[in-house]
């Protein structure tokens, strides 16, 4: 169990800065998920903690000890790579024992550890196989095993599930999470899949272009996003954003309008955000034309076109809903779940 602290962490490649000063304090045994769109610097940040990427400025501390200048092997970390990075010419057993041999551990101790971890991950039967003779899920578990067997202070995962099919991904998601809780090893987990992020994280770090846009528990971030980027990125299907104008009595959305909530005191142009699951279908003060219908089984996503807005409004409805493309569909917002963002700074106002 270890703590990790990142202070004003920056990274530049030649002249371009890609990580712009990140501060994160991670507690013992915490499961931290770094999430963000492609190219936002998740891998870079993780690799800086691992020691695979040099640190341009700032500090990384593991257990209150600055590790900036330590080799990866001296940081007490284990990493699981996206492509698993299993040694193809070695058996599963040797893959797991490789690091232990380098620690000059006695043979019987190595054997005991490998067998124990293999049992934990249910890969005992494949120990003598080469990675090429394993399925994707099995390889994934071997990669996990290789990380666990070293008994590290910190686990680092870089999109470890993105090469698996959807069903397996959900299973492995559970397994990794359960395992981490059992072993109580501090973990940093990188993903661009926000469902994965929400379900696994103790705390989420939402990265945007090399900046930590928001840090918090999944529910904090879902309920209380700091800005438009976080609001749009977390939650699936994504939050709707509508340009509107706030007047004294009403908020105008194109030609339509709703009553101005009392706590909204700013006037003028503003961006209104509403999640697809936060619509009210019993009342109807707004309407739109049905543009597309996505049937997901348990529920239905309606894409409604409102005049004056290019983006369709997405509404999550009951699975039984029967709608036709081109029909006019009345709806209204659940006014308690409205978010308002500044048009220019994109910061959340209300």
């Amino acid at each position: 169990m270890s703590t990790i602290n990142m202070q004003q962490l920056k990274k530049s490649y030649q002249d371009t800065e890609v990580i712009h000063g990140i501060n994160i304090d991670i507690e013992e045994g915490e499961f931290i998920v770094l999430v963000g769109p492609s190219g936002c610097g998740k891998s870079t940040l993780l690799r800086m903690v691992a020691g695979l990427e040099s640190i341009t400025s700032g500090e990384v501390k593991i257990d209150d000890k600055v590790v900036n200048d330590l080799e990866p092997k001296d940081r007490g970390i284990s990493m699981v790579f996206q492509n698993y990075a299993l040694y193809p010419h070695m058996t599963v057993y040797d893959n797991m024992a490789y690091g232990l041999k380098l620690m000059k551990m006695p043979k019987d101790e190595i054997d005991k550890r490998v067998q124990d971890v293999a049992k934990l991950l249910q890969i005992q039967d494949y120990l003598q196989r080469r990675p090429s003779k394993l399925s994707g899920g099995q390889r994934q578990r071997v990669a996990m095993g290789r990380a666990i067997v070293r008994d590290p202070k910190v686990f680092l995962f870089d999109e470890p599930l993105s090469n698996l099919d959807a069903k397996l991904r959900v299973q492995m998601r559970m397994q990794i999470k359960t395992l981490q809780q059992k072993l109580a090893v501090t973990t940093i987990y990188v993903t661009h899949d926000q469902v994965e992020a929400m379900t696994m994280a103790d705390r989420l770090v939402v990265l945007n272009n090399g900046i930590a846009a928001q840090i918090g528990t999944p529910m904090e971030i879902y309920d209380d996003p700091k800005d438009q980027f976080v609001a749009g990125f977390i939650g699936s299907p994504a939050m709707n954003f509508l340009d509107c104008e706030v007047c004294d009595e009403s908020i105008k959305i194109g030609q339509q309008s709703i009553a101005t909530p009392t706590h909204v005191t700013q006037r003028g142009k503003i961006v209104l955000g509403i999640r697809p699951e936060h619509f009210n279908q019993s009342v109807s003060d707004l309407q739109g034309t049905v543009q597309m219908i996505e049937k997901l089984g348990s529920n239905v996503l309606l894409y409604l076109k409102m005049e004056n807005s290019e983006q369709p409004v997405v509404i999550q409805c009951d699975g039984q809903l029967d709608a036709k493309i081109g029909a006019v569909y009345p709806f209204s917002f659940n006014t308690e779940k409205l978010y308002f963002f500044d048009t220019n700074t994109q910061q959340r106002i209300y």
Partner: peptide, 18 residues
């Protein structure tokens, strides 16, 4: 050879020669 293999080995504690 994928770069991540070399990196994995580095994390496992292997020096350049090894």
């Amino acid at each position: 050879i994928p770069k991540s293999l070399i990196e994995a080995a580095a994390i496992d504690g292997a020096g350049p020669l090894h």
